[in-house]
C-alpha cells in the first residue's frame, strides 16, 4: 500500500486551529454569481454549459487557480473533492459541462455551472468570517473586471434560486457541538438558531447528515441587507452557540468529570485497538477524542492527527490514501488499520 502523510492529504483548514477553534472548525463565505445573457446551468444545454465554462476558465488567473473540467477527472477524485468541501454533492451528481477552479492554497474554490454559473467560496480556519469574506470578495472583484455579471439595480446579483438573489451570499460556520449533543440539547439549539433567522445544515450542505457532531450554521436570506450585516448576524448567532457549547462542557466536567474522562479515553482506546470500524462510528469516536483534547483531558499533541482522521476515514479519502481500489467488504478493516497506525505514531 502506497501510503502518504495524512496531513498532506486533507484540506489545510481541517488541521489548523483558528479563533474559537475549540468549537468552530471553519468559517466559509460563498458568493453566487451568474453571467449576463446566459441561461442558468440547470436550464442550459450541455453545449451552452461548455461554452460558459470556457468563458469562465479564460477569466480565471491560472497563476492563482488550477482549473478542472469535472468530466476530465475520475469519480473517485470528484468524491474526494466533495469530502474536502471543494465540490458540492449537487455538482458531482452530474459533472458534464461543469468545472472547478481551486486556489493554490486550497482555501478558495470556484465551482463552475453548479446551481449558478459561479459559486465562489473561501474558507478560513476557526471563526474568522472577515478573512474568508476578504478573499471571496477579491476573487469576485477580479472576475467582475473580465466577465459581465448578471446584476439588477433593484434585486442585486441574479441567481437561479430566488432564495440566493441579492448579495448571493451564504455565510457559514462549521461547528463541533459534542457537549450540546451529549446532553440532548441539540433540538433546543437548532430551534433557537432557526428563530434567529439562521439554519443548521449537515456539513456537506443542504439535506446532508450531521456526523461526528459537526454542524453548519448559515444564513438563509440573501436580500435586503448588506454583506457586512449578514456576516455580523452570523457571528452573533455563532458566538451564542459557542457560548452554549462551552457552558455545557464546563457543567459536565464540573459535575461529572469522571464520566467525561472515562468516555473520551474509552473512545480513544477503541480507536487505538479496533479491527473493524465504520465511518459513522469512527466519526462519533473521533468527536469524543476531539472533545477530550479541547477540554485538556487528552494531550493536544494528537489534535492534528485527529482532525485529519475526521476527513481521511471518509470513503473516497480512504481509498486515495491507501492508493488502491478497496474491496468494500474490507473497507471497515482498512479504516480501523489506518486509524490505529496513525494514532500509534504519536
Amino acid at each position: 500500500m502506497a501510503k502518504k502523510d495524512i496531513l498532506d492529504l486533507v484540506t489545510p483548514w481541517m488541521i489548523k486551529d483558528g479563533p474559537d477553534g475549540d468549537v468552530v472548525l471553519s468559517s466559509r463565505i460563498r458568493l453566487a454569481r451568474n453571467l449576463k445573457d446566459q441561461p442558468f446551468p440547470w436550464h442550459a444545454s450541455l453545449e451552452t454549459r461548455e461554452k460558459v465554462r470556457t468563458k469562465i476558465k479564460k477569466a480565471i488567473n491560472p497563476e492563482e487557480f488550477d482549473f478542472l473540467s469535472l468530466e476530465d477527472i475520475s469519480s473517485l477524485e470528484r468524491e474526494n473533492m466533495m469530502e474536502s468541501h471543494l465540490l458540492s454533492p449537487q455538482i458531482i451528481a452530474d459533472p458534464a459541462g461543469r468545472g472547478v477552479a481551486i486556489s493554490k492554497d486550497r482555501l478558495s474554490s470556484i465551482m463552475v455551472n453548479e446551481e449558478d454559473h459561479l459559486r465562489i467560496q473561501s474558507i478560513a480556519p476557526g471563526l474568522d468570517l472577515d478573512v474568508a469574506m476578504k478573499k471571496a470578495n477579491a476573487i469576485d472583484d477580479q472576475i467582475e473586471k473580465v466577465l459581465d455579471l448578471a446584476f439588477d439595480e433593484k434585486y442585486g446579483y441574479l441567481t437561479a434560486w430566488p432564495t440566493n438573489v441579492g448579495t448571493g451570499i451564504r455565510v457559514s460556520a462549521m461547528v463541533h457541538l459534542p457537549g450540546l449533543a451529549l446532553t440532548n440539547n441539540m433540538p433546543r439549539t437548532l430551534n433557537s438558531v432557526n428563530q434567529l433567522g439562521m439554519v443548521v445544515r449537515g456539513i456537506y450542505g443542504e439535506g446532508t447528515e450531521a456526523l461526528g457532531n459537526l454542524y453548519q450554521i448559515s444564513n438563509q436570506r440573501s436580500l435586503g441587507r448588506s454583506e457586512e450585516e449578514f456576516l455580523k448576524d452570523l457571528a452573533t448567532v455563532a458566538t451564542h452557540v459557542i457560548g452554549e457549547e462551552r457552558k455545557i462542557r464546563n457543567i459536565v466536567i464540573e459535575k461529572n468529570r469522571a464520566f467525561l474522562e472515562d468516555k473520551v479515553h474509552r473512545s480513544l482506546g477503541t480507536l487505538k485497538e479496533a479491527r473493524l470500524i465504520g465511518t459513522n462510528e469512527a466519526l462519533a469516536l473521533l468527536s469524543d477524542v476531539r472533545l477530550g483534547i479541547d477540554l485538556g483531558l487528552i494531550s493536544d499533541a494528537i489534535k492534528p492527527t485527529v482532525q485529519a482522521l475526521m476527513q481521511i476515514i471518509r470513503p473516497a479519502h480512504l481509498q486515495k490514501y491507501l492508493g488502491n481500489n478497496l474491496d468494500p467488504e474490507m473497507r471497515d478493516y482498512y479504516r480501523a488499520t489506518v486509524i490505529r497506525e496513525e494514532l500509534a505514531k504519536e
Binding site: 433593484k154 430566488p162 432564495t163 441579492g166 451570499i169 435586503g224
Partner: peptide, 8 residues
C-alpha cells in the same frame, strides 16, 4: 427574503 431591495 423579507425584502425586495438589494442593499449589498
Amino acid at each position: 427574503q423579507g425584502d425586495v431591495t438589494h442593499r449589498g
